[in-house]
Design a protein around this nucleic acid. Structure first.
Length: 294
DNA sequence: CTCGATCCCTGGACGC
DNA sequence: TGCGTCCAGGGATCGA
């Protein structure tokens, strides 16, 4: 489930362990998740990994050319999908069954990319192509001002959960942290963006910051088998208040947490703390089934 | 514009 | 023990 906190955890660990290393060679064992495998094979050898940073749910390995001063800004983009893992190994360690990419490093180690489900993605991009790619995504949840968040959410008629998951609106929030933030802010996931009051936006803005920061401190949530490049699992799953807690008592009001599908995803919420929006459209109660066509 | 459905993919859970 | 089935879910894509 790598979402923002998990990717941040991985990026920080890689920054510590591989920044400054030069790529000697590239081995592709499977490449159907790479945008342009040829470019990656051609361009990576000789490049130095100058910096590892997180961009939404992507990791950005900023590259530098060996000798001359950096000309075009270039980077290796890595999306971990659901089960991706990018970690350095010593060459003696046996290859994991689903290791697809191996980058030999100049200190004798190998940076290996493993991803059983191959929901991840990898791409070498430079110059304007890199800029264009990065511009596709919305605001960083930990940077976005409250006013901008309000503008982004209130200008839409989509449901707030769908908006939180939409990487063009906010980059980095996934299913877990969307549910946790909405629970914390007491907002029902099916609420329409434009119906959110300023006070609710404020709650949501603060909830996102609080939860994402806390989760980063705890090195993310390990619910499937997420571990960071040092093999350490996260701890934040123990702090989940909504996600995965169907039938369990709400920590605020003891009402059983419910599960529904919103934006095509399992969505957990407290039916008491997070009030449902209007009659939802199935006003079959007593109004007779006449929907005004306006 | 927004939504649901479908596909990608494998491992784990579950039922018998 | 083993096999079939279902489900998880980020994101792209397509039709409604």
């Amino acid at each position: 489930m790598p979402e923002l906190p998990e990717v941040e955890t991985v990026a920080r660990a890689l920054q510590r362990s591989i920044a400054g290393r030069r790529v000697l060679s590239v081995t592709l064992r499977m490449s159907d998740f790479i945008d342009d495998a040829g470019a990656l094979e051609r361009e990576l050898p000789g490049r130095t990994i100058a910096l590892v940073e997180r961009y939404g749910k992507f990791m950005l390995l900023r590259l530098r050319r060996g000798g001359d001063a950096d000309a075009a800004n270039e980077a290796l983009l890595v999306h971990l999908g659901m089960t991706g893992n990018l970690s350095p190994f010593s060459t003696e360690q046996p290859l994991h069954k689903h290791t697809h990419v191996i980058l030999a490093l100049d200190d004798g180690r190998e940076l290996r990319y493993t991803d059983p489900r191959r929901f991840g993605r990898m791409a070498y991009l430079a110059g304007s192509a890199l800029e264009r790619e990065l511009q596709r995504f919305g605001a960083e949840p930990l940077q976005v001002p409250e006013r901008e968040l309000a503008q982004r959410l209130q200008s839409s008629h989509a449901r707030v959960k769908a908006l939180l998951l939409d990487q063009r609106v906010l980059r980095g929030v996934g299913n877990i942290y969307a549910d946790e933030s909405l629970w914390s802010a007491r907002i029902h996931p099916a609420r329409i963006g434009s119906s959110l009051k300023d006070a609710e936006i404020r709650e949501l803005h603060q909830a996102l910051r609080k939860i994402l920061r806390h989760a980063i401190r705890m090195r993310g949530s390990s619910i499937s088998d997420f571990v960071d490049p040092e093999g350490i699992p996260g701890d934040y799953q123990r702090r989940h208040r909504a996600y995965g807690r169907e039938g369990k008592e709400c920590h605020r009001c003891a009402t059983p947490i419910r599960r529904m599908i919103v934006a095509g995803r399992s969505t957990f919420y407290c039916p008491s703390c997070q009030r449902a929006p209007r009659p939802k459209g199935k006003a079959k109660r007593k109004a007779g089934r006449r929907t005004s066509k306006r």
